[in-house]
Design a protein around this nucleic acid. Structure first.
Length: 213
DNA sequence: AGAGTGATCATG
DNA sequence: ATGATCACTCTC
């Protein structure tokens, strides 16, 4: 449904609803659920690229055998996970893909939320130019590496602070996903994680077409 | 179901 | 220095 307000007012209101530090300081599983329905924004020059978060996964840090920080591992790659809640953690994998996480809780608590899918909103034309294989809007951001390609998120953005950065942030548009519309299941691609592989730390908006397959 | 792709890190 | 691994995507 289109926003009936004048465009100038729409933009202004969007500027004023950036998520603040206290939200990121939540316990990581709670943050993974909270982020559903929030809007991720990336300014690409003067072009606003954005999408509503519809799928997330929580990574619980030191005890979590699926997390990059398992066992307290601290390396140049995962350094951002050790920073304060609200930091962006971007990693590169399989020789060609980037994925992005939202760091949760306090500094030195290396937990994060993987963003797995967005419903594209602003800047879809630009996203299509980056994702050549996309045929429909739902192909643009329906996977953790797809959305990074669509939004041009790379290691260059690793470590930025979503609370203060001038190009990248997350907004609250007042969209509340009721608990009964949130589906839960095991995380994807972590079969090696033994007893942690089956834990229900993946969350998505039930029946949403933009969720990853 | 298999290939692609190269940074990353533990090992020595 | 070396080699195994990989929080994925695409095509078949």
């Amino acid at each position: 449904m289109p926003d009936p307000r004048p465009r100038k007012l729409q933009i202004q209101s969007k500027m004023n609803n950036r998520i603040t530090r206290d939200v990121y300081h939540q316990e990581v599983v709670k943050l993974a659920r909270t982020l559903l329905g929030k809007v991720f924004v990336r300014m690409d020059g003067n072009t606003r690229l954005s999408g509503m978060i519809v799928e997330t996964e929580a990574y619980l840090g030191i005890p979590d055998k699926a997390a990059h920080t398992v066992g307290g591992r601290r390396t140049p790659r995962n350094e951002s996970m050790w920073q304060d809640g609200g930091t962006l953690y971007v990693y590169f994998t399989y020789g060609m893909h980037h994925c992005m996480n939202i760091v949760a809780e306090q500094a030195d608590e290396p937990v994060a939320v993987l963003i797995r899918a967005l419903e594209p909103m602003d800047g879809k034309e630009v996203m299509y130019t980056r994702r050549k294989v996309a045929k429909k809007d739902r192909d643009l951001c329906s996977g953790p590496a797809k959305l990074c390609q669509a939004l041009d998120i790379t290691r260059d953005q690793d470590g930025i602070d979503l609370v203060t950065d001038s190009k990248i942030w997350i907004e609250d548009h007042g969209i509340k996903i009721p608990g009964k519309n949130i589906a839960t299941g095991p995380r994807i691609g972590i079969q090696y994680a033994e007893e942690w592989a089956d834990k229900p730390y993946r969350f998505w908006v039930k029946d949403h077409p933009c969720v990853s397959k």
